[in-house]
């Protein structure tokens, strides 16, 4: 038996700690706990208000259940064969459609969708040149810095804040929302696309260059085919995000369904709230499914 083994036998074994320095480790643990206690303790909780609010919460949950039922009835009327539904009701008479038309959900939703599409298209169109400019292996230094600062600015500014500023300048309406979303798309898409271009296979791009291709041809044949699948995937993902964001821009007056939602909350009309939320969830699910299918096809 070796001496090293003998020294260890009979001694307890402990897993070596994640942070080796004990002082630093205990400072970190103690600091975290202290922050947690102080931060949590600093939150005002008004139990009276919560007890009162629980009634609203209950109403919301019931409303959501009811609206979900109405939505289910509508779908099963729409596709009777799929659900084995033999009632033969006209789907247009359903409660779901009634809520939709009565509260002008359709109008707000329509505006949200329009804003989403327009801003995604414009955002992508602007993102592509900026992404090329922000890829360090393609762009010269001054262009690189310029494009990177546009991206940084777009990422640092929250959509809602941009929307507030734009509404102050342009007035209420979907134009402010459209510009907000286009601008936010640039920060997201151009950054990820630029990273993708920076990570692309150099040999393929060099092979095209070595044939004597011009800069435009080089981008077209050497770079574009490599980043195209990712561009399509990211665009679909951004379409999804833009739709979700468009639903809240209305809170600050920048168009879309958010305004309807805000009014409904102010008036405690929880059935309208539930109908809008359900619609948003369903549309997001459909968009996610579609983007999954499209991404599967291009890759």
């Amino acid at each position: 038996m070796s001496a090293a083994l003998e020294a260890k036998l009979g001694r307890a074994w402990k897993k070596p700690p994640f942070i080796a320095n004990p002082v630093f480790r205990w400072l970190l643990i103690g600091g975290s706990i202290a922050y947690f206690v102080v931060a949590l303790g600093g939150i005002d909780v008004s139990w009276d208000r919560i007890v009162k609010g629980m009634a609203y919460g209950k109403r919301f949950i019931f409303a959501f259940g009811e609206i979900f039922g109405a939505f289910y009835d509508y779908i099963s009327d729409l596709f009777p064969d799929l659900f084995g539904n033999t009632s033969g009701r006209d789907p247009n008479d359903s409660r779901w459609i009634e809520i939709w038309t009565e509260k002008e959900i359709i109008k707000g939703l329509y505006e949200s969708i329009v804003m989403t599409i327009a801003s995604t298209v414009v955002g992508i169109a602007i993102s592509i040149p900026i992404a090329l400019g922000a890829a360090s292996n393609i762009a010269p230094m001054p262009v690189y810095l310029f494009c990177r600062s546009i991206i940084a600015l777009s990422r640092a500014l929250n959509e809602i804040i941009v929307a507030i500023i734009l509404v102050a300048i342009l007035g209420f309406g979907p134009l402010a929302g459209f510009i907000t979303l286009s601008f936010a798309t640039i920060g997201f898409l151009a950054k990820l696309l630029a990273e993708d271009i920076e990570n692309m296979n150099k040999q393929q791009a060099e092979a095209v260059k070595s044939t004597g291709a011009s800069w435009g041809q080089w981008i077209n044949f050497g770079v574009q085919p490599q980043v195209m699948p990712r561009l399509i995937g990211l665009s679909m993902y951004r379409l999804d995000i833009n739709f979700r964001e468009s639903a809240v821009l209305g809170l600050v007056g920048a168009g879309g369904i958010g305004a309807t939602l805000n009014t409904a909350f102010d008036r405690y009309e929880f059935d309208t709230v539930a109908a809008i939320l359900l619609t948003i969830i369903v549309i997001v699910m459909i968009l996610e499914y579609l983007s999954g299918v499209i991404r599967g096809k291009v890759q």
Binding site: M1, S2, A4, L5, K8, L9, G10, R11, A12, W13, P16
Partner: peptide, 19 residues
């Protein structure tokens, strides 16, 4: 168990690598 683990690691020559 801990002792058995040390013995085995020693047998295969990896005692120093335990942690």
């Amino acid at each position: 168990d801990v002792d058995a683990a040390y013995r085995l690691l020693d047998r295969v020559g990896l005692l120093e690598m335990a942690d």
